[in-house]
Design a protein around this nucleic acid. Structure first.
Lengths: 235, 235
DNA sequence: CGTGTCATTGATATGGCTCAAGTTTTGTGG
DNA sequence: CCACAAAACTTGAGCCATATCAATGACACG
């Protein structure tokens, strides 16, 4: 796993090219101040990351906050025995590292080719010191993140089937496309996110497919054929 | 379980008596703006709650934020099959409900006789609209809460022994008393907090006692006799 | 001093993990 | 574009940690 990206912190990979067109604001974010969001968007520069490339490592000084513009980023921690805990898969519109720390407390890798906006944290926080709207925006994002984390914690108390049903409904909800749902992460990553093994993930996905609740036309695509059943299982 | 407190929302139990003397500021909170904290403390009124009494129910309009001044409050959700998930045990100095919701997304009960400060949320938020220091304080508390929630999520990926070791170290860290650590919650509540059954909690506590790592002189007191061993197990 | 709650302890069941092949897909260099 | 290696995935069998079921013991309180 993780071949290549040894300790390679971002070199001089900044480009000022404006690549904001694909930015999709999620439902949760939509309720937050749009103006303050724009303030943030205008501040940074964008960078491209290849699959498996690191945005930052655990312990790195947290100099930037990151906004995903396209692709998918995972944030995770290493655990005992080459196990990992994936906190979240970040899709376009998501912010990473907005909660105040001086040092990153997790690792962030691109799991698909991604464009990310980097905003200087010191600069942003200085601005927030006199910009109430911006500060409220940051509070809003942090608050949403707290809720998401609570939901994910609750998920870890359910059985394997419920976890996967919940996960599928969540990615379906976040993916704009109708019909096929993009699932850019591999089985091992789903497992690390849900606190399961990849064998269990594989077995349960197969079980769901056999019972016609989902279809798996491609490794990275799911079709939800019976959302009602999935919702029932996820409870 | 939960005999008595049917749906009894707080009646007219406000008293303006100042009961702040026992308030203890935890380490995490200490780094946050003291002035803004005082602003909050001056705003509310205090109320007393008996053991098992409800502060609020899931679905209640979130009219107040709560600051624990003495005692211990649990916040939790009901799950399928009369199971519950206890989010946190709140000790003196902790804030409850500061993250913005219009409706409470959990239940809060006193697990020991407690004094709690109630601050009108609308009033507080109105004030925060023009008080940057207060807003930053709220962001700080929310941010700490996010970190705590992340830590607790990570805990749920460990095995039963690690969870209990981590839990014991955490309550030891939060309890000021030297030696004996107060553990006001019953076994079932520890289990509901750690995602275990009370039988497993009981068995593991006994195992730790047998191996001289802890002592359990009373049902609600623990003595940590070998913190090093506990720390090793908690990893 | 009896009744209910909480805790301890034992016996058994089981969901998901581990280990082990074998298969399919993806990526890479020629 | 093909061949080959590596990575990802599927499937099976057995096992283990923790849940579940069950019985008993110890307080605490009216």
């Amino acid at each position: 796993m993780d071949k290549g990206g040894k300790g390679g912190l971002h070199k001089s990979k900044m480009k000022s090219r404006r690549t904001a067109r694909k930015s999709r604001t999620s439902k949760t974010r939509a309720s937050l101040s749009e103006a303050a969001g724009k303030t943030i968007d205008l501040m940074g520069t964008t960078a491209r990351y290849k699959r498996t490339e690191k945005l930052f490592n655990e312990g790195d000084k947290a100099a930037y906050i990151y906004k995903v513009e396209s692709g998918c980023i995972k944030t995770y921690n290493r655990l005992k025995g080459d196990r990992r805990h994936i906190r979240a898969f970040h899709l376009p519109g998501d912010y990473i590292g907005l909660e105040s720390h001086t040092v990153h407390d997790c690792i962030a890798d691109a799991i698909a080719p991604s464009v990310v906006r980097l905003i200087n944290k010191k600069q942003l926080m200085a601005r927030a010191n006199s910009d109430i709207a911006l500060l409220k925006f940051i509070l809003g994002v942090t608050s949403s993140e707290l809720m998401r984390t609570r939901d994910h914690k609750a998920l870890l108390l359910k059985d394997a089937e419920s976890r996967i049903a919940t996960f599928l409904l969540e990615i379906a909800d976040r993916d704009s496309r109708r019909g096929k749902i993009g699932m850019p992460m591999v089985r091992q990553e789903i497992a690390d996110h849900l606190g399961l093994t990849f064998e269990t993930v594989s077995r349960i996905l197969w079980r769901l497919e056999r019972s016609r609740i989902i279809a798996l036309p491609e490794r990275h695509d799911v079709v939800i054929k019976n959302a009602t059943a999935l919702k029932r299982m996820s409870a």
